[in-house]
Amino acid sequence: MSWETHIADATVEIFSTMLMMEVSSQPPLTERIKSHQDSVTGMVGMAGLYKGMLAIHAPSQVAMTITGNFLGLEVDSVNDDVKDAMGELANMLAGSIKAKLSDNSKDIQLSIPSAVCGDSYSLDYQPQQGSSMVPFESAGGRFLVELQLEQQT
């Protein structure tokens, strides 16, 4: 799935420009991870010519580091800043991937971002045409970017 290249490019670019963080993409997972422990997930829906959902999942500690870099402040708990930052990151990643999928910005539109966090939760999708999960390594730790996408007939 070439979407994985889009995910990798968009993530590396946004982390280096907006967060001043070096991240490197790892080979896409062959099986998606659906359960998350002590983590934060930022997500945004995509609608139009392609419909889907983009999500970024990070363990709480990594999400705090990401937010610290993103907002330029000290973060010592999973507070509203962290949830907003992860939602906004999902939004930016989806915006960048959307531009790579179509030249016409009206073809794919984004919903508002949302975040989920907790000790133990899972995310499930109905079977979709395209599903990719790409892990990234950073100095702050490992996180996942997930794209579920179906092209409309």
Binding site: P127, Q129, G130, E150, Q152, T153
Partner: peptide, 10 residues
């Protein structure tokens, strides 16, 4: 209609 591999229209 919307399905992977081969959709309902195809």
């Amino acid at each position: 209609i919307n399905m992977p591999n081969m959709d309902g229209i195809e």
